[in-house]
């Protein structure tokens, strides 16, 4: 067997494996989309791999018939605020941890990592009590604050890695060139850490958009549900509106997908830069 043929064969096998893997990953999404287009004909056996009569009725019912728009707005609020809080706080925190090497910052760097070892379920009860006393129970702000406290350690660590890679001399040069310390940070260091900042923003947004556990625990009224919580309401005591639930799930997926596509360029650069230390 010639080397060329062998290499081609290996490539073909790899492509086949990759396609098989992609099929496994994408099939649930396809099934979700197909079920949403199926309409009421979904209740038959064996199920159709492709909708018998594709239509958008389920989408229409979901959008007009219940609270999906409200939940979507709530999800958007939680996702954007978590993203914003994480970005603003972790920029400053990560910079401090990266640039000021004192015993205190080393201690806090360790402590921040430690908080990641605690599962949300462990502290959700104390959070519930505290939020109730603070009047934050059953409010979207409460959900955003609670979730931020979970995402913030990761985003701070992530951004610290980016700041660590920017030579301190560049910042010092800016200070000599006429900037104050803060000016050098905002004018020179932060723009260089932009890919990292984008990763943090995406991380916060996706976490906020997907949030279920804290949102389910810290909100009560349907008006304050986020979409992930709202999706469960399609499961009734006796029936499950599969087609509507899937239509809502498709709607739920879209904003995150578009957001991801929009920032993907920065995200890939950011993740790559974060992974390689010069």
């Amino acid at each position: 067997m010639s080397t060329l043929f062998k290499n081609r064969l290996i490539n073909l096998v790899w492509i086949a494996v990759t396609l098989a893997f992609a099929a496994v990953v994408f099939f649930p999404y396809y099934w979700m989309f197909a079920s949403a287009l199926e309409g009421s004909s979904i209740y038959q056996f064996p199920p159709n791999l492709w909708p018998a009569e594709p239509n958008l009725d389920s989408f229409w019912t979901v959008i007009t018939g219940n609270q999906v728009p409200v939940w979507m707005k709530n999800s958007f609020f939680v996702a954007s605020t978590v993203s914003l809080f994480c970005a603003v706080i972790s920029i400053n925190g990560a910079y401090a941890l990266s640039r000021f090497k004192t015993g205190a910052t080393r201690f806090f760097t360790g402590i921040i990592l430690f908080t990641q070892m605690l599962p949300a379920a462990l502290i959700v009860v104390p959070l519930f009590v505290i939020f109730q006393q603070l009047g934050l129970y059953d409010s979207l702000t409460g959900v955003s604050i609670a979730l931020t406290s979970f995402i913030l350690p990761v985003s701070t660590w992530l951004l610290k890695g980016f700041f660590d890679q920017i030579p301190v001399e560049i910042e010092q040069q800016a200070m000599i060139d006429g900037c104050s310390r803060l000016g050098a940070f905002y004018r020179v260091t932060l723009p260089l850490a932009l890919p990292g900042l984008v990763v943090v923003i995406v991380l916060g947004f996706i976490a906020g958009w997907d949030e279920f556990f804290l949102a389910r625990t810290l909100t009560a009224s349907q008006d304050n549900w986020v979409l992930a919580v709202g999706l469960t309401s399609f499961q009734g005591e006796y029936t499950i509106e599969w087609n509507e639930m899937m239509a809502a799930a498709v709607i739920f997926t879209m904003p995150a997908l578009f957001f991801f596509m929009f920032v993907q360029r920065y995200l890939v650069a950011g993740l790559a830069a974060g992974g390689v230390k010069d």
């Binding site: 001399e169 560049i170 010092q172 800016a174 200070m175 104050s180």
Partner: peptide
Amino acid sequence: QPKDRDIAMVFQNYALY
């Protein structure tokens, strides 16, 4: 502050933006 000293510095790694 360094910015008020009216000095210019060239670093070993050049520290270009």
